[in-house]
Amino acid sequence: NKFNKEMRNAYWEIALLPNLNNQQKRAFIRSLYDDPSQSANLLAEAKKLNDAQA
């Protein structure tokens, strides 16, 4: 399933972002599970926040 693969990839990328705190990571990951079709958008948002907090 395409969404499962995208979701799994996004999950690990988000989990490993160095500048997000655990609460932020959990919120993004919860959103991934709520709507796997938004994986790419959620990952992009997480990366933006990660960069902003660098």
Rank of each mutant, 00 (worst) to 15 (best):
F28Q: 01
I14V: 06
Q38P: 02
N1C: 15
N1R: 02
N21S: 12
E45P: 00
K2W: 07
L17G: 00
R8L: 11
N9K: 15
Q23D: 12
S39P: 03
L42N: 03
N21G: 09
A40S: 12
N50M: 01
A54I: 09
Q24P: 00
L43K: 08
D34S: 10
A46I: 02
Y33A: 04
S31T: 05
Q53P: 07
P36H: 04
N50D: 10
F3G: 08
K5L: 03
D51V: 13
L32R: 00
W12N: 15
R8I: 05
R30I: 08
R30H: 10
K5A: 12
K5D: 12
N41E: 08
A52Y: 10
L42H: 07
A15M: 14
L17M: 13
L42Y: 07
L20Q: 00
Q38I: 09
Y33K: 04
P36K: 04
S31K: 09
D35V: 06
K2F: 12
A52L: 13
K48P: 00
A40Q: 06
K48R: 13
N4Y: 10
A52N: 09
D51T: 07
L16D: 08
D34E: 11
A40F: 07
N1Y: 01
N4S: 04
K5T: 10
E6A: 04
R30C: 03
N9R: 12
N22Q: 13
P18D: 11
N4F: 09
N4W: 10
N1V: 08
D51P: 01
L42R: 08
S37T: 08
K48Y: 12
S31L: 11
A27K: 07
Q23T: 11
N19Q: 05
D34R: 11
A52G: 10
E6K: 04
A44I: 12
A15E: 06
S37L: 04
S39M: 15
L42S: 05
P18A: 14
A52W: 13
W12C: 03
S31D: 05
S31M: 10
K2V: 09
L49N: 03
I29M: 05
L17V: 00
N1I: 07
I29G: 03
I29V: 15
P18M: 08
M7H: 05
N4K: 06
N4L: 08
N50K: 01
S31P: 02
E13Q: 03
F3D: 13
A27M: 03
L32A: 02
L32W: 03
R8H: 11
L32G: 01
S39Y: 11
E45M: 09
E6D: 08
K5G: 05
M7F: 11
N41G: 08
L42M: 07
N19F: 14
F3E: 06
A54L: 10
A52Q: 15
R30Y: 12
Y33L: 07
L32P: 00
L43R: 09
F28V: 03
E13K: 14
N9V: 15
Q24S: 04
R8E: 15
N9W: 10
A46C: 04
A44F: 11
L20W: 00
R26C: 04
A27H: 10
K48N: 15
F3Y: 14
A27W: 15
F28E: 00
W12P: 00
P36N: 05
N41V: 08
A44W: 11
Y33N: 04
F3L: 12
Q23V: 06
E45K: 11
A27N: 14
K5Q: 09
P36S: 05
K47E: 02
Y33Q: 04
R8Y: 09
N9A: 15
A44S: 14
K2R: 10
D51N: 13
A54R: 01
L49C: 02
I29Q: 15
S37R: 07
N4R: 03
K47F: 08
F3H: 14
E6W: 03
Y33W: 04
M7P: 02
A54T: 14
N4D: 15
N41C: 03
M7L: 14
K2G: 13
Q53E: 08
L16R: 15
K47N: 11
N21L: 08
R8V: 07
N22H: 12
I14R: 00
I14E: 00
K47P: 00
Y33V: 12
R30D: 05
K5M: 03
L17Y: 06
F28M: 05
W12M: 14
K25N: 01
S37A: 07
Y33M: 07
K25H: 02
K48T: 11
E45R: 14
E6R: 01
R30P: 00
R26M: 09
P36G: 05
E13Y: 12
P18L: 06
S39L: 14
P36V: 08
K47M: 06
P36M: 05
L49K: 07
D51L: 14
R26E: 08
L43F: 04
N21W: 07
E13W: 08
N22I: 09
L16Q: 15
Y11H: 11
S37Q: 08
A44P: 01
A44R: 11
K2S: 12
D34L: 13
K5C: 04
F28S: 01
A15Y: 15
A10S: 07
A10H: 05
Q24F: 02
N22C: 03
L20M: 03
Q24T: 05
Y11E: 15
N22T: 11
A52V: 09
L16V: 10
N21M: 08
A15N: 13
P18R: 09
R8F: 06
Q53D: 06
D51H: 08
P36T: 04
D34W: 09
E6M: 04
L17W: 03
A40W: 11
N1S: 03
N9P: 04
S39F: 10
I29N: 02
A52D: 10
R8C: 08
Q38T: 07
A40R: 08
N9C: 02
S39T: 12
W12D: 08
Q38N: 12
R30N: 08
M7G: 03
A27I: 08
P18S: 12
L20R: 00
L49W: 06
R26K: 07
N50L: 01
N22Y: 14
I14T: 01
L16T: 11
N21D: 15
S37C: 03
K2Q: 11
E13N: 09
Y33P: 01
A40N: 10
D35R: 07
Y11S: 09
W12F: 14
S37N: 03
N41H: 12
N41M: 14
R8D: 06
Y11M: 13
E6T: 05
N1G: 05
E6L: 06
N21H: 07
E6G: 02
D51I: 13
N21F: 05
K2C: 07
N9L: 12
Q53Y: 10
K48I: 15
Q53H: 07
R26G: 10
N50W: 01
A44D: 11
Y33H: 08
E6F: 03
M7R: 02
Y33F: 14
R26V: 07
A46L: 02
K48A: 10
R26I: 09
L17E: 01
S37W: 10
L17H: 06
N41P: 15
R30Q: 10
A10E: 02
D51C: 04
A27D: 12
Q24L: 07
A40C: 03
N22D: 14
W12H: 11
E13D: 07
S39W: 09
A44H: 13
P36L: 08
E13T: 06
L42W: 10
L49M: 13
D35L: 05
A15G: 11
N9Y: 15
P18H: 09
A40G: 07
I29S: 03
P36Q: 06
K25G: 00
E6N: 05
L42Q: 04
A15C: 03
D35C: 03
D34K: 07
F28P: 00
N1H: 04
L32D: 00
K25T: 03
N50C: 02
K25E: 00
